[in-house]
């Protein structure tokens, strides 16, 4: 069965809907990427999935006992708060030091156990956040623009790491990104969001969809060039595929 099923979801702040009537499903082991312009409701959608935002309409069903790992968009640790990587990884449960080591290794950041969080570089910080998300052997990994502040090689390496983690643990990944060209090659399915689901499908399908091109314009020319464009197949734009479920 699906890990998470989002049905007809509408969420917003103070009565103003940011995401309207969205259907979404994540199956075990697949990497699903949500792309969309600023203000398209990507983060709100993800926050609803982790339970930080109550739906105003529709519902979100999770597999019973689903283990979720979450990598936030941005984590500001106040400089007045001293905390080592190990202590950070152990929150809130009482994980063992070995578990922390393993997670750091998986996230590609060994040897950081005793470092202060405030002393980490941007790339190290993101890897520690990933390690924290991996602490409870998640079945579903949720990432919100996890590579913000990383340079291009840095974020490419980060996404390769995500793929490696998926290959190792078999966890599903639902992530948000604006770095289309980097992300798309790693994704099984791409969902283009702009308040509602504009189009979805395999990276190649989405990249050639007119809705996607309308949103991202010609600036993605380089990204599109990464893919072979086969226009010899039919596909459904929009939510039709989901609605049929």
């Amino acid at each position: 069965m699906s890990l998470v099923t989002v049905e007809n979801l509408t969420v917003g702040y103070g009565g103003k809907a940011v995401v309207r009537h969205v259907d979404l499903r994540v199956d075990p082991g697949e990497i699903v990427t949500i792309v969309g312009p600023n203000g398209s409701g990507k983060t709100s959608l993800l926050r609803a999935v982790i339970g930080a935002l109550k739906p105003t309409e529709g519902r979100i069903r999770s597999k019973p006992g689903l283990r979720v790992g979450y990598v936030p968009q941005r984590l500001h640790i106040d400089p007045t708060l001293p905390i080592t990587v190990e202590r950070f990884l152990r929150l809130p449960g009482g994980a063992t030091r070995d578990a922390c080591r393993n997670a750091l290794e998986q996230a590609g950041a060994p040897d950081l156990l005793q470092s202060q969080m405030s002393g980490l570089s941007g790339g190290q910080f993101q890897r520690v956040l990933l390690a924290r998300a991996l602490m409870n052997q998640p079945e579903l990994l949720l990432l919100d623009e996890a590579t913000q502040g990383l340079d291009q090689p840095g974020s490419a390496a980060f996404y390769r790491r995500i793929e490696a983690v998926r290959a190792e643990t078999g966890c599903a990944v639902l992530m948000i990104s604006h770095e289309l060209h980097v992300v798309m090659s790693a994704s099984d399915r791409v969902i283009c969001l702009n308040g509602h689901v504009c189009c979805e499908g395999t990276p190649a399908v989405v990249a050639s969809a007119p809705e996607y091109r309308a949103l991202f314009g010609t600036g993605t020319g380089g990204a599109l060039a990464l893919y072979r464009h086969d226009h010899d197949h039919d596909h459904d734009h929009g939510r039709a595929t989901e609605a049929a479920e």
């Binding site: 926050r47 930080a52 979450y70 984590l75």
Partner: peptide, 19 residues
Amino acid sequence: WSALLTATLNEDLAHASGV
């Protein structure tokens, strides 16, 4: 203590951890 600390670090992270 642990729950307070998690919530202090980041609210969304707390939600995802069941706090």
